[in-house]
């Protein structure tokens, strides 16, 4: 992924260099106008088609109605739930663990990544330990987490922090290692000491990588939050899904599943928007603007 981002970046840098001698690229524009509207219409048509097909399959018995209620009923249930407090309490519980877990992982992974990225020796020393820990599927740690932390918030936070630590760590390491030597030489030639170079050069260079790490961590964190509730029995959306299922409230179960999907989508959209705004100087973002 890091590679992809970088390659796109380089391609763009080359392209802009060969542009006319004194041409000035305009300020990045917003995607809008008739093309944007048409694009949106096509996307919405796709969503609508899927919903209609699902609805008809259920209504005409192509799918067993008992297990696959019509989509319209699921959404009706969802809207009914959204008007009431209990759903939001569950969403809050899930999100709280998500936020604390990712926050904790960030606090640990970013400094660790900076340390490993800055020191070749530290990186080589920790390499095997990291390669051993990283592939452990976080869900395999649920029994351990339940044993140590019980079935509350702490257990969820531990699992989320463990799972999201790795992408954040690696993105930070890559980001710190990928500082352009010319940029670093420039800062040195202009008399910036090591500490100044860290803040002026290293951190901004690594920021796009860390932002990507956060976006990845955001979706992994949500998966772990819901999983730990489903399997570990902590309260939250995952647990609500299990309860609905065992009570035979299939429509409610679907409405809750849709809620988790919407949550993941919304979180990703928020992170992508923040990335776009804060890092609009980065080649990957510039290209998106130019598209």
């Amino acid at each position: 992924m890091r590679q992809a981002v970088e390659d796109e970046g380089n391609a763009l840098v080359v392209a802009s260099d060969t542009a006319g001698p004194e041409a000035v690229a305009g300020p990045p524009g917003r995607r809008a106008g008739p093309r944007g509207a048409a694009d949106l219409a096509i996307k919405l048509a796709g969503v609508l088609a899927v919903l209609v097909v699902l609805e008809l399959c259920s209504r005409f018995g192509l799918l067993p109605r008992r297990w696959f209620p019509p989509v319209s009923e699921m959404y009706a249930e969802l809207f009914r739930l959204a008007a009431q407090q209990p759903l939001w309490v569950e969403v809050g519980r899930t999100l709280r663990a998500w936020a604390v877990g990712i926050g904790l992982a960030t606090l640990l992974a970013v400094p660790a990544g900076v340390a490993l990225g800055s020191s070749a020796v530290a990186y080589r020393m920790s390499r095997i330990v990291i390669e051993f820990c990283r592939p452990i599927p976080s869900v395999a740690l649920i029994p351990l987490a339940v044993l140590v932390y019980g079935t509350g918030l702490e257990m969820k936070v531990f699992l989320i922090a463990f799972a999201t630590f790795w992408p954040l760590l690696f993105q930070t390491v890559y980001g710190v290692q990928d500082v352009d030597p010319v940029a670093r030489d420039t800062a040195r030639a202009y008399g910036l000491g090591a500490a100044a170079r860290f803040w002026v050069i290293t951190i901004p260079s690594a920021a796009p990588y860390i932002a990507t790490g956060l976006r990845i961590a955001s979706s992994i964190g949500l998966v772990l939050a819901v999983t730990s509730e489903l399997v570990g029995g902590a309260t939250g959306l995952g647990r609500a899904i299990v309860v609905a299922q065992s009570a035979g409230q299939i429509t409610l179960m679907y409405a809750l599943i849709i809620t988790t999907g919407l949550l993941g989508w919304a979180l990703n959209a928020v992170f992508a928007a923040v990335e776009r705004k804060a890092l609009r100087w980065h080649p990957a973002q510039r290209q998106e603007v130019a598209r």
């Binding site: 840098v13 802009s16 260099d17 352009d180 010319v182 940029a183 030489d185 420039t186 040195r188 030639a189 202009y190 008399g191 002026v200 050069i201 901004p204 920021a207 890092l279 100087w281 980065h282 080649p283």
Partner: peptide, 20 residues
């Protein structure tokens, strides 16, 4: 070390200028 009275212009301006 880099003296205060000296400034450096690199060939690779696109990398010497900080994009952010």
């Amino acid at each position: 070390g880099p003296p205060e009275d000296m400034a450096f212009v690199f060939q690779d301006y696109s990398r010497s200028l900080l994009p952010w």
